[in-house]
Every structure is written in structure tokens, then in C-alpha cells.
């Protein structure tokens, strides 16, 4: 199969909204959205708490979380795999080879980004806002809502970066999801599988969707930072 006809078929898959194709795209988006949402639910408060609290060992924790931003995806996958395997501590949950397992692996990848970025953003804002907020009686955890809201554009950019990292990842979701057809097959694992089968059109089609998605994420991040810049003056 030559590359030109592969491209032609790839576009046809996309334009005729092939159901199998859409299911894969849909699952990928659902898993990654969920992972980013969970990471935000946990990471925003955690990052905010880290920004506003001082305790012994805090710097060690901050450095550790920063380092986790570079956690190799396959290691995240391995951790989740070992936890969820029937022979592992959480084996009783029966979650290995399910979308939930993929959500967990991706959450693990995105969480350090969210925590780290939230902490840095809020610390910077706090330096600027400290006098005013203290004057209003908003200190410690009472300052957090204001800081989160005023850091919303930077934080949105961070969440988008997390989304990008999670959606483009293949190693971890392959390991814990098992690439089961119609169930845990995502865009990235399908690309890996279809390439190995030599079925290039589907791989290419999914690749094009992934690229478009990445482009959209970056456009959104750019827009967020532009709007943010407007408000930041």
C-alpha cells in the first residue's frame, strides 16, 4: 500500500465518520477528559495547599513533585499495572484492562503537572496580592479561591498541557488497558496496533485526528494565555 492511497483512505475514514473509528476517538477523549478532570479535582487544591502552607520537608515535596512531571509514562503504567493486577494490592477491584485503569494511569501522569503548576502560579500571585488580601482578612486557605480564580488562565494552560501529555501517550494505556478492541482501544494504542498489522490508513486517520487535537489544544492554550494577558495587563 503506498502512502498516497493510505492518506486518501485515512481522510475517507474521517469524513464518512466510520463508527469504529469514532468509537476509538470517543473513548480516547473520554478517558483523557476524565483523567484531566480528576487530576484537576485533586491537583488544584493540593497545589494551592502547597503554595499557602509552610512545614518541614515542604521543599523536598515540591522538588519531588516537580521531578514527577517528567515521570516516564511507562513507569506510570507499570505502577498502575502492579497495583491493579489480580496479584497486586488493588487486584480485588478488577480494574486491570478497563478504561478506569487507563484513567488512573493518565491521572498519574497529569497530576504532577497540575500540582506543580498550581503551586507555582499561586505562589507568584500571592507575592503580588499578599498585602491586599491580608488587608481584607484573606490569609492562608481563605486566600485560595481568589488566587485560583485569578490564576485561571495560567491554570487552564497547564490543564491543556496535561491533556496533551495524556492524550498522546501510548505506553501506559497499552500496559494497563490491554488495547482490547471496542473496549480499551484508544487512538494511540490503535495506531501502534494498526501500524504493526501494516494497516496504515486507520493508523494515519487516527494520527491525523490526534494531530488535529494537539493543534486544537495548543490553539486553546494560546487563546487562554492571550485572554489571560489581557486581564493581567
Amino acid at each position: 500500500m503506498d502512502v498516497t492511497s493510505a492518506f486518501a483512505e485515512a481522510f475517507s475514514l474521517i469524513t464518512r465518520l466510520d463508527t469504529g473509528f469514532l468509537a476509538i476517538v470517543g473513548l480516547s477523549l473520554r478517558v483523557t477528559f476524565t483523567a484531566v478532570a480528576l487530576a484537576a479535582l485533586v491537583g488544584l487544591p493540593l497545589g494551592a495547599w502547597l503554595a499557602m502552607t509552610r512545614f518541614p520537608g515542604r521543599s523536598v515535596l515540591v522538588v519531588a513533585i516537580n521531578a514527577l512531571m517528567g515521570l516516564p509514562p511507562v513507569v506510570a503504567g507499570l505502577i498502575v499495572f502492579l497495583m491493579l493486577s489480580r496479584s497486586g494490592p488493588l487486584g480485588g477491584w478488577g480494574l486491570l484492562f478497563t478504561p478506569a485503569a487507563m484513567v488512573m494511569a493518565q491521572t498519574l501522569l497529569v497530576l504532577p503537572i497540575v500540582v506543580s503548576l498550581t503551586r507555582a502560579t499561586l505562589e507568584e500571585l500571592w507575592t503580588e496580592y499578599r498585602d491586599h488580601l491580608t488587608s481584607l482578612g484573606l490569609t492562608g486557605h481563605r486566600a485560595i479561591p481568589t488566587l485560583l480564580w485569578d490564576g485561571r488562565f495560567a491554570l487552564a494552560t497547564g490543564l491543556l498541557a496535561g491533556f496533551g501529555r495524556a492524550s498522546a501517550e501510548v505506553g501506559a494505556v497499552l500496559m494497563v488497558g490491554g488495547n482490547i478492541a471496542h473496549y480499551t482501544r484508544t487512538m494511540t494504542t490503535a495506531i501502534a496496533l494498526e501500524t504493526s498489522k501494516g494497516d496504515l490508513p486507520l493508523a494515519l486517520g487516527l494520527g491525523i485526528v490526534l494531530m488535529t487535537l494537539t493543534l486544537a489544544i495548543n490553539a486553546a492554550a494560546y487563546a487562554a494565555s492571550r485572554i489571560g494577558a489581557r486581564y493581567a495587563g
Binding site: 478532570a37 484513567v103 479561591p145
Partner: peptide, 22 residues
């Protein structure tokens, strides 16, 4: 603004459970 945040969290939580529960 506080309400907006609560609504957003609820939406995210619903979304999260929906994705896992099928």
C-alpha cells in the same frame, strides 16, 4: 464566582463517574 466553581466541580465529577461506569 463561588457558585460557578461549585457547578464546574460537580460537572467534572459527573463526567468522571460517567466515563468509568459504563
Amino acid at each position: 464566582m463561588f457558585n460557578r466553581r461549585i457547578v464546574l466541580s460537580l460537572a467534572l465529577a459527573t463526567f468522571a463517574s460517567a466515563a468509568v461506569a459504563q
